[in-house]
Design a protein around this nucleic acid. Structure first.
Length: 476
RNA sequence: GGGCCCGUAGCUCAGCUGGUAGAGCACCGCCCUUUUAAGGCGGGUGUCGAGUGUUCGAACCACUCCGGGCUCACCA
């Protein structure tokens, strides 16, 4: 079998042929080019340089049409032997779909009415060695789309659009907060105590200190140290890591926005959160994303206990005892197991209430026992000054008046301390120096992106969602 | 981790009751100077996810493993 059948082998042969004729298949630059969208806006007869990846070819003997794609879109190129010369036209015939090329020529309009560049010269900018996914059906295989995201964003415009939405969203978040004098900071990702949330952390090892470290599960405790230091308005937009299962709503690494404002309580954060999300949503809408009117309209405010009552038909109040909760869980077919009171309530809430909260809703009245870093309500110590934000039945954010009493905080920490969560004495010490009253807000940026783009799984808004690593044998 | 479903050509997918694979796009050869899912003629390029078993014979049946999807569980 002399005949090369494999598409990659055929392309490699073309690469060798290019090199043998003294052409660099990977030149360093292509200067003075304009992008496809700008080119299409220009007048007929204009000479210009465009470049991009060959996406389709229509070869008709001595002339051919190709479409090239750049970040702005696509533009058609006309390659004709009497414009390019025999040698260059032959060179063009060896280009494949997927190759990057650069072209110079005049703009003209074809019989069919499409603005097209009449190539006078053309150059290979990067030879592609593998065939691209099919032009018409695109790339559908979910696993390949996630593992080889570069192909997904290349051939599936919808994927690209949703993923790019993240950039728009983070940029608008920054703009919104910076306008309000919040200062963006970066706190440690590697922490010796993984605090600020309750989740199993990833462990890692620092060689020089020969010590175990944890990937952060939340930046919260570091950000509040900054409040101690006198920085009144800070925010961090960064990755958290939680060593837990994956689902349509969960990825082990995810992006969190945390915002803190000194001298405010959770009512301030409620307004800020609503304004923030609405302002981002407005930007998205402007960019023609299908933002639901619910988000731009009036947001509901509902009480945790009232919601439990409404959706279970059972009577719930902050004064509920462990035994009562257990009985209700039983009645509601929620196996209580060895769960604590707040965990049982949380389970019932998740099962009966969360998916009903489709319009944007602030839920308040959470039990203090489930809110260790929050201040209690002055009216009822069983209740925390806290709210969560729900949109489309998913928990999008969490906020509270921050606990700044070092003694209460320490007691709570001691009560919760276990092998996974040792007491962060250094944080308590910081509070002992004095932290101003403050409120804090956390928003899951991935979930916010889902809500604003209509993505149904978190994987669609993550460029490279976590998948099980392929073992070395089956790796290409 | 449990349950259900899926894995066939580079891509998108067919493949019946078990008889050793097929289409479109892509690719290869020839023709073609305004095409655009270009067209015409000719050509399947495959470790049917992997392995074991049942069988005269396995893409198909059974079991194990690998990877994926949905779902449940886990998840302050």
């Amino acid at each position: 079998m002399n005949k090369k059948q494999d598409q990659t082998e055929i392309r490699k042969d073309k690469l060798i042929k290019l090199r043998d004729s003294g052409i660099d298949p990977y030149p360093h630059s292509f200067e003075n080019r304009i992008d496809a969208a700008d080119a299409l806006g220009m007048k007929e007869g204009k000479k210009l340089r465009v470049c991009g990846r060959v996406m389709s070819r229509r070869i008709m003997g001595k002339s051919s049409f190709v479409h090239i794609k750049d970040v702005s879109g696509q533009i058609q190129i006309f390659m004709a032997v009497d414009k390019l010369g025999k040698e260059n036209y032959a060179l063009f015939r060896d280009t494949d779909i997927g190759d990057f090329i650069g072209v110079e020529g005049d703009l003209f309009v074809t019989r069919a009415g499409e603005k097209t560049v009449m190539a006078e010269t053309f150059i290979v900018l990067s030879k592609s060695l593998r065939p691209l996914p099919e032009k018409w059906h695109g790339l559908k295989d979910v696993e390949t789309r996630y593992r080889k995201r570069y192909l997904d964003i290349l051939v599936n415009p919808e994927s690209s659009k949703i993923l790019k939405a993240r950039s728009i969203i983070t940029a608008s978040i920054r703009e919104f907060l910076e306008c309000r004098k919040f200062c963006e900071v970066h706190t440690p990702v590697l922490q010796d105590i993984a605090g600020g949330a309750a989740a199993r952390p990833f462990k890692t090892l620092h060689n020089v200190y020969n010590t175990e470290l944890y990937m952060r599960i939340a930046p919260e405790l570091y950000l509040k140290r900054l409040l101690v230091g006198g920085w009144e308005r800070v925010f961090e937009l960064g990755t958290n890591f939680r060593n837990e299962g994956l689902s349509a709503m969960h990825n082990p690494e995810f992006t969190m926005l945390e915002v803190y404002a000194a001298y405010t309580d959770y009512t301030f954060m409620m307004n800020l959160a609503e304004e923030l999300i609405k302002s981002v949503a407005a930007v998205m809408k402007e960019k023609s994303f299908p933002v639901s009117e619910d988000i731009l309209g009036r947001w509901d405010r509902k009480d945790y206990w009232q919601l439990l009552k409404t959706h279970t038909g059972e009577d719930f109040s902050p004064e509920i005892t462990y035994e009562e909760a257990k009985q209700k869980a039983d009645k509601l077919n929620i196996p209580p197991g060895k769960d604590s009171l707040e965990k049982i309530l949380d389970r019932i809430f998740s099962h009966y209430v969360e998916d009903k909260l489709s319009a944007p809703t602030f839920v308040t009245g959470y039990p203090s026992s489930a809110s260790p870093l929050a201040k209690q309500s002055p009216d009822n110590p069983m209740i925390a000054e806290r709210f969560e934000i729900f949109i489309n039945g998913s928990e999008l954010g969490n906020a509270y008046s921050e606990q700044n009493d070092p003694e209460i905080q320490k007691k709570v920490f001691l009560k919760q301390a276990g092998s996974n969560t040792p007491v962060d004495e250094d944080y308590i010490e910081a509070l002992e120096y004095g932290m101003p009253p403050a409120s804090g807000l956390g928003i899951g940026v991935d979930r916010l992106t889902m809500a604003l783009t209509g993505a149904e799984t978190i994987r669609e808004v993550l460029l490279f969602p976590m998948l099980k690593p392929l073992n070395a044998d089956s790796r290409e």
